[in-house]
């Protein structure tokens, strides 16, 4: 099962390598990874998606918690949550394809953020599934480049991940 693990960690050099190193060292997989500073400059928020059953995720969570630089870990998939992945996708857009790509982008509520004589760059935000669906819909379109932010997530309602 796909899980979204989100954690607060010390904004220290080497903290990220400890988390990533743990995954490679213990043979766990990382599907996506997203990390950035928070409103508290001493803390970073790291969100990753991984796949595993309950026992596996429990062990991964415990191992993450054991890292001295990791302050708190939460499995967002345990409860209601909002998750977003951001994609920038550059496609060849010439002739009739220009209209077609524009229409599909509108349907997916994406935005064309850069336009050239032969290419469009589209920005799309949503769940990973939605982004996958958009890529899959580009059947007759020449995709030149895809970049995704990886999943970022937050719990719904009052529940917060903070100190």
């Amino acid at each position: 099962m796909r899980r979204i693990l989100s954690m607060l960690m010390e904004n220290e050099p080497g903290a990220l390598s400890r988390v990533v190193g743990l995954f490679s060292q213990r043979g766990y997989n990382i599907e996506t990874l997203n990390v950035a500073a928070t409103d508290d400059p001493t803390l970073s928020r790291l969100t990753l998606t991984t796949i595993g059953d309950d026992l596996h995720i429990e062990q991964v969570t415990k191992q993450l918690n054991k890292l001295v630089d990791v302050v708190k870990v939460v499995d967002l998939t345990e409860g209601a949550h909002v998750e977003r992945d951001l994609m920038l996708i550059k496609v060849r857009a010439t002739g009739a394809a220009r209209d077609e790509v524009k229409r599909t982008t509108d349907i997916f509520r994406g935005q064309i953020v850069d336009v050239g004589p032969n290419v469009f760059t589209i920005q799309l935000v949503g769940t990973s599934d939605k982004l996958d669906a958009f890529v899959a819909s580009m059947v007759d379109v020449d995709i030149l480049e895809v970049v995704r932010s990886g999943v970022a997530g937050i719990s719904r309602g009052e529940k917060v991940l903070s100190l």
């Binding site: 050099p13 080497g14 390598s17 400890r18 190193g21 060292q25 001295v68 630089d69």
Partner: peptide, 14 residues
């Protein structure tokens, strides 16, 4: 050293 010892320490400091 911090990198090379990372998987075999409880923690490390630079």
């Amino acid at each position: 050293m911090v990198g090379i010892s990372r998987p075999i320490v409880k923690h490390s400091f630079m």
